[in-house]
């Protein structure tokens, strides 16, 4: 079985593979002795199969959003005093 990361890198750098129809890519991967997980990911379009194969390691933005600009909103104004409540504490 060919290493899945190697195959992903091969697909990423080969225009005919990167933009091949899923069915054609799956056949090519079969000839390259790709893992069942990678072929299933190509067939279904769901990368979760590959993530499971590679140890389920997940540092994706699905759980951890990307670093964002830091917006510091002004503090919300204090709530208005309810009737009968002194504004002086």
């Amino acid at each position: 079985m060919t290493n899945t990361i190697d195959l992903l890198e091969s697909i990423a750098t080969d225009a005919s593979l990167r933009h091949a129809p899923a069915h054609d890519l799956e056949q090519m991967l079969d000839a390259m002795h790709a893992s069942d997980a990678l072929k299933q990911a190509v067939r279904t379009g769901d990368a979760v199969h590959v993530k499971i194969e590679l140890g389920g390691k997940d540092g994706s933005v699905n759980q951890n959003p990307p670093p964002s600009n830091i917006h510091m909103p002004p503090p919300p104004p204090p709530p208005p005093p309810s009737p009968g409540e002194s504004i002086i504490s």
């Binding site: 990368a47 540092g59 994706s60």
Partner: peptide, 9 residues
């Protein structure tokens, strides 16, 4: 990174 697989790469 955006993806754990990318981190492995």
């Amino acid at each position: 990174l955006s993806d754990g697989i990318v981190e492995l790469w």
